[in-house]
């Protein structure tokens, strides 16, 4: 079986977010890039399954410019065997899915993080399955493979569901798919340099979205302390100021 893990390149979660160009684009100056946390968990599960013998090699793929290569290299250091970068500025989910559709053919299992921690688009996995004409399963929190058959766990309201799904399939994974991302060992870091990172030209695809503007969330208001025996004041504040009652 062949597995492909989609890797989104996102700003480190401690990044100070700024916008440029009339607040229409994100200022990438001085940003530290990391593997999208959900994709990192997907890769971790892929590694575990590979170690259990389900796959021989793990491929990772990303749509991005050269700045995403250190993120792909990290995926290789963690344990992926080869990487593909579609050389384009990612525009929106449809654009990215269209690019990935070109490289994702022929894989039995495609893992996509449920969303990326930057734009929270949560669109690529489903669109990719549609473009490839294959099934997808969303909100996957567990994946087992026994004798080539996939057993997929997904979270549903108030419980969980276990499915048997045919391949090829896109699994849109979330927390729970793996416990904790792996830290690359030094041997892996050294080997990553020698593993293939193939750069592929993009296909023509129109983006379906136009960004009109970004804005930062309102700054957190100062914390107000209420004496423990003054429930009346607490209710008044919740009602008149916070307006949640």
């Amino acid at each position: 079986m062949k597995i492909l893990v989609l890797i989104s390149n996102v700003p480190d979660t401690t990044t100070k977010i700024r916008f440029t160009g009339d607040n229409k684009s994100f200022d990438t100056n001085g940003v530290q890039w990391i593997i999208n946390p959900w994709d990192e968990l997907a890769l971790t599960r892929a590694m575990e399954l590979k170690e259990a013998g389900a796959f021989e090699t793990i491929t990772v793929a990303n749509v991005g410019t050269q700045i995403t290569e250190s993120t792909l290299r990290k995926a290789l250091a963690v344990g992926a065997d080869e990487a593909i970068r579609v050389d384009a500025v990612p525009q929106d989910a449809f654009f990215v899915a269209s690019q990935l559709a070109k490289v994702a053919e022929g894989y039995d299992v495609i893992l996509a993080g449920i969303e990326a921690s930057d734009y929270n688009g949560a669109g690529v996995g489903g669109m990719l399955a549609e473009l490839l004409g294959i099934n997808s399963v969303s909100a996957v929190s567990g994946l087992e493979i026994e004798n080539g058959a996939l057993k997929v766990h997904r979270d549903i309201d108030g419980g969980s569901q276990v499915l048997s799904v045919p391949t090829p399939v896109v699994l849109i994974v979330q927390k729970g798919i793996a416990i904790e991302p792996r830290i690359p060992a030094m041997r892996g870091i050294m080997m990553a340099r020698k593993k293939p990172l193939n750069v592929i030209a993009p296909v023509d695809a129109e983006s379906k979205t136009e960004f009109l503007g970004f804005e930062l969330p309102a700054p957190k208001a100062a914390c107000k302390m209420v004496e423990e025996d003054n429930a009346k004041e607490l209710i008044r504040l919740l009602h008149e100021e916070a307006k949640v009652l």
Binding site: S70, R73, K74, A77, E180, I183, P184, A185, M186, I189, M190, A192, R193
Partner: peptide, 18 residues
């Protein structure tokens, strides 16, 4: 280099997580 930064990050991850 990319490797040096990756090692720094690996050490940081281990220290801050574990």
């Amino acid at each position: 280099t990319e490797e040096q930064l990756m090692i720094q990050q690996a050490a940081r991850d281990y220290a801050q997580r574990e």
